[in-house]
Amino acid sequence: MIDLKVTEIKMGEEHVGKWGMVIDQDMCTGCQACVAACAMENNITFVGEKDSGYGRSMHWIRIERFWQGEYPEIKMTPNQPMMCQQCGSATCEPVCPAFATVHSQAEQLNLQVYNRCVGTRYCANNCPYQVRSFNWRDYKRPEPLANQFNPDVTVRRRGVMEKCTFCIQRIHKAEDKAKSEGREVVDGEFTTACAQACPATAITFGRVDDPESLVSQLARRHGHGVKHLEELGTLPNVTYFKGG
């Protein structure tokens, strides 16, 4: 026998990250509450109607809707919330010439270092999920939203890339609190803004490396989850369910 020494290629299901999400598309009503909550939580700016219509909306999460067939005989597909998949092997990371897009070893997340970003936008081109948003201008927030800022999150200026962080400020807050109380973070102790706002509980967030956590249980129970574009070897950490 010839030993070919084939390196095993990990696909999404075998890869275990740290934080992950399970999204049940059958539950999603497309109400956009997660989009609004994410914008409030993460100080996402308002780009206005015109820029938004030109593909410059900056939402870190979006609800994708598709239909099949020609009007009026159209069939809607389930709503598909799409945000950064926090890939284990992210294509956005190696292409940044300034190390502004880096991988967190501690949290197993893709970080965007806003104040290191010089705005080459290569990461956004190379993201197969197209979930990165660029600050095309210094947008003004309409009143009274200008008075609403989350003090735990920085605001970004023009020329900088940004994206979903899995609400890393909440992760850190929970970890700090648990550490000061001398314990581990309990599953369900905190969640991301989108999951918290979802009235249909279509989004669940938690530890994917803990088999007893809710996300792991849901993933097992449905058993037919899909990770988007995992054939590219990106090792995404978000699992989608639909049709059952």
Binding site: G55, Q130, N135, W136, D138, R158, G159
Partner: peptide, 15 residues
């Protein structure tokens, strides 16, 4: 001064 908004780049044509 104003940002790349006055150019035509958008999502998905970042370049």
């Amino acid at each position: 001064a104003e940002g790349l908004g006055i150019a035509g780049v958008n999502r998905p044509s970042y370049w």
